[in-house]
Simulated assay, not measured.
Amino acid sequence: MAIPVPTQTHATPVTASSLEHFNTTPAEEAVQALLTCLNSRHWAHRLTAHRPYPDLPALLAAVDEAAYDLSPEDLTEALAAEALPALPEDTYAVAHTALSAATAAYESRFGHAFAICLDGMPANEALDHVLEGIRSRLTNDPEEERQVAADELRRLARGRLPDALQGRGAATFRVAGRDLQDDPGL
């Protein structure tokens, strides 16, 4: 299982320029960028369809609302694309074993990937936080856990949105034939 390295995230500032690019970029490109935040096509199309957003708080409110309205199918689609945060490379083998065992137990019980938002979490505390999260959430009933997972996905989407707007997600917005990260105004 390949797991990315957890890092303490620092919110990328969203500028008026990047929000304007999001508001005016072609719909399919906006959808692709949003899918880097939360892999639900319905969620991404809904946010794209409601453009333009006057400011970041309006967009974040729409992100939350659309995430709260995920259908069971949308939630399944989004969870299927999630991966656990990675362990730092110098982590002891026993930690990898513990994380693998906990993840396997979680996925066996609930039938989907474990999602957890580590925004603001120092890297040296991430493993304990993930393991504690898995262990405590294993006691949830499946419907309760889907709600918890949906809330974690919403938090992940909010945290990933600034990078997507700045063109730092897996997809980048292109306006007038240039990538947003090439724009000196960003």
Score class of each variant (00 low, 15 high):
115 A>L: 09
107 E>Q: 15
127 L>K: 09
94 V>K: 13
104 A>Q: 09
142 P>L: 01
39 N>K: 11
45 H>V: 07
124 N>L: 07
34 L>P: 01
62 A>I: 04
73 E>G: 14
102 A>H: 09
16 A>L: 11
54 P>H: 02
107 E>N: 07
33 A>Q: 04
118 L>N: 14
23 N>D: 11
100 S>E: 11
79 L>G: 04
31 V>I: 15
33 A>W: 06
18 S>E: 08
53 Y>E: 14
131 L>H: 10
134 I>V: 11
104 A>P: 00
137 R>W: 10
48 T>N: 08
127 L>Y: 12
46 R>K: 11
22 F>M: 00
65 E>L: 04
69 D>F: 01
154 R>Q: 09
54 P>C: 04
40 S>C: 05
133 G>E: 13
14 V>W: 03
35 L>Q: 02
24 T>A: 13
154 R>G: 07
69 D>V: 00
44 A>D: 01
147 Q>L: 06
26 P>K: 03
115 A>W: 12
135 R>E: 14
22 F>T: 00
72 P>W: 06
84 L>H: 06
56 L>N: 05
101 A>T: 14
88 P>G: 04
152 E>H: 12
23 N>V: 11
107 E>P: 00
148 V>D: 10
153 L>I: 11
38 L>V: 03
101 A>V: 12
83 A>W: 03
142 P>E: 03
69 D>R: 14
151 D>K: 05
56 L>K: 10
82 E>V: 09
48 T>F: 10
123 A>W: 04
149 A>N: 02
60 L>R: 15
95 A>S: 13
150 A>T: 09
113 A>M: 07
53 Y>T: 13
17 S>F: 09
65 E>M: 01
124 N>C: 05
73 E>V: 13
77 E>H: 13
58 A>F: 00
47 L>E: 02
76 T>W: 00
104 A>K: 08
154 R>F: 03
106 Y>A: 03
52 P>N: 04
53 Y>I: 11
76 T>Y: 02
